[in-house]
Write a protein that binds this DNA or RNA. Structure first.
Lengths: 211, 211
DNA sequence: AAGTGATTAAAACACTCGTTTGAAATGCCT
DNA sequence: AGGCATTTCAAACGAGTGTTTTAATCACTT
């Protein structure tokens, strides 16, 4: 088994277990056992457990954020070129659609998205920063775009509404792995492929609501 | 120190540490040290760590949910009496306002609310159920009320939007303790006492959005 | 004041954790 | 084939975990 395979096996197993059980409730022995590699391989290849989490996050989030950034910038450029204000819906699409499309692309991706969705509310600052380091620049781009799209909103209220949006999105990302409220007696929410559309409709209305 | 004092000290310390560090990252030794009681007191008074969490949740959530239930039922009865459909905003107020008012009532309450806000997305099913057991009946009441308030919405879409609402609310509850996105360079979101109003406006618009 | 049940206390138990060590194995180039 | 760097492996380390045990202390009734 080559080095790359070992590292990939560890990343795959860690991604799955971190998502299913949480970071602190996942042991390196559980990861190496699932990956069928030696326990010491984690520290050899990644240094420590924290760095493994960062690697798990980086592997998927770097390309995902690059895509989100491209789409956001394209929407902003399009508005700039036509002299119009950017549209809220387009900005939100650029931010949300890549995430949920990636989420629906494979079961492993579902695990990862759940992990990210939970990271925002993670009590451990170290873990939260693994995620925030990557997301804050995109968030800033989205915020400034929305400021131009919704010039009548005070920046405090826009900030609050954007936080509401992030909360909604984080929860949607989480319920992929553990359908918290899909309980007998309640109807199933909409299917995965319709979820992005419904989510965008929801947060669009919230962001554009009159004060 | 009487029995009640010891139990209360443990509950207070556990509430604070569970909220700040998460359940799995909090040790009984940390709790008993903060509470200045003997380590064995936790197992003596509560049985085990899981049961302590349940006790922490029950102590605050039982009265809070009773209040939410009363307000929800009152709004439904009022609509019933006048022959009108219940109003979305009133139903949401009944669900949200008691939570955020309690949150702003004391620092200890802030910890608890953050704990609850995170519980919904908790990967550990045992922990999640500590919370869901209490919340599901209220959730059901809210759902059926919203079904009557928004009869044009399919129950699948309503369910999805209600999940979005719960996600938004959970996130708002979390950011009391750890202001995830309150970063230098970003404006502060609205103050605590204005937060409930803004949140209700946001989710109201989302729930009432046209399909 | 003695005795009884509830509570506190210190210590240990059995276990799991992340990390380190040093030797064995593997891959690769000359 | 020899030699060297990389990777794998079993084993152990020390610290920390939830829980249990047993004795001491407290509160209260008869």
């Amino acid at each position: 088994m080559s080095q790359t395979d070992t590292k990939t096996c560890i990343l795959d197993a860690a991604e799955k277990l971190f998502a299913e059980d949480g970071f602190h409730n996942t042991s390196l022995r559980g990861i190496t056992s699932l990956a069928t590699v030696n326990l010491a391989a984690v520290n050899y290849h990644f240094g420590c457990k924290d760095a493994l989490l960062q690697a798990v996050i980086d592997r998927r989030l770097l390309p995902l954020n690059q895509l989100r950034r491209q789409k956001l910038q394209a929407a902003l450029d399009r508005a700039e070129a036509t002299g119009r204000r950017p549209e809220v819906r387009q900005l939100l699409c650029a931010f949300i659609e890549p995430t949920l499309e990636f989420r629906n692309s494979s079961p492993g991706a579902k695990d990862f998205i759940a992990l990210i969705g939970r990271a925002m509310n993670e009590p451990d600052e170290t873990i939260r920063n693994c995620f925030l380091r990557q997301v804050l620049p995109i968030f800033q781009l989205l915020f400034s775009g929305l400021q131009r799209a919704l010039p009548d909103l005070s920046e405090n209220i826009l900030m609050a509404r954007l936080q509401f949006t992030m909360g909604t999105m984080g929860h949607v990302m989480c319920i992929s792995a553990q359908p918290a409220l899909q309980i007998p007696g309640f109807p199933n929410p909409v299917a995965d492929d319709k979820l992005a559309k419904e989510l965008i409709t929801f947060v669009c209305a919230g962001l554009e609501a009159p004060c």
